[in-house]
Amino acid sequence: MTHKSIPTPDSFTLRIDGTDVVAQVGQSILEVAQDHNIGIPTLCYLEGLTPWGGCRLCLVEIKGSGRLLPACSTLATEDMDVTTTSPRIERYRRTIVELLFSERNHICAVCVSNGNCELQTLAQEMGVTHVHVPYRYPTLLVDSSHDGFRLDHNRCVMCTRCVRVCEEIEGAATKGVGGRGIDSMIINDLNEPWGESDTCTSCGKCVSVCPTGALTEKGTTFADMAKRRERRELLPYLTQTREGRR
């Protein structure tokens, strides 16, 4: 139990997976669940950044709502009855992970983030051993023009964490999304090589928040755990920044 579980004037109760839990006004379902150690898979969500709602892995059932709703961006309300998992939801989540694997070239064996990748971990946790949909094998470029970092589009899942951290925390807004649909790409400025960007401050936050091996620091190896540690240190900072904005 964390301090957030103690009833205050701003708290209320709701049900998650059949258990009554205490929530604070303004918390999302995901935040409440995390406070109570109820695991909901996420990918595009990162504490401290504005919820995106794009990966659809945190979809939950809410009694009375016809549709599945993303836990990251749905506010918890009093007497809500939330179900975070069911055979149906699990099947959908697995399919979404398979779709992600099929979309670009995720070859774990040659990836610097092997063993330190959120997509890989999700697949392992969900027991995804096969991808049932056809692979796309797109031809994608790797942007190594930056002195310190590398952007490998082959490993990108379009979670836009880098876009959000660059705009919301660093305030540089170097990263953006170009193209549409299946051709969407993370771009720098107006689709320039990263190394030629006038706005990039080389702060490296985008690399820290990247869930896969799409954004990496040059010179790191696949056994390098620095990235993970760095990411851990960043979280409280992100949270603090957001709290300050509230």
Binding site: W52, G53, G54, C55, R56, T95, I96, L99, L100, S102, E103, V133, P134, R136, V157, M158, V177, G179, R180, G181, I182, D183, S184
Partner: peptide, 18 residues
Amino acid sequence: CMTESCGKCVPCRVGTYQ
């Protein structure tokens, strides 16, 4: 639908393609 998908969410972006 595939060409008009905005690309924000995975099921529409990759699902319509598949």
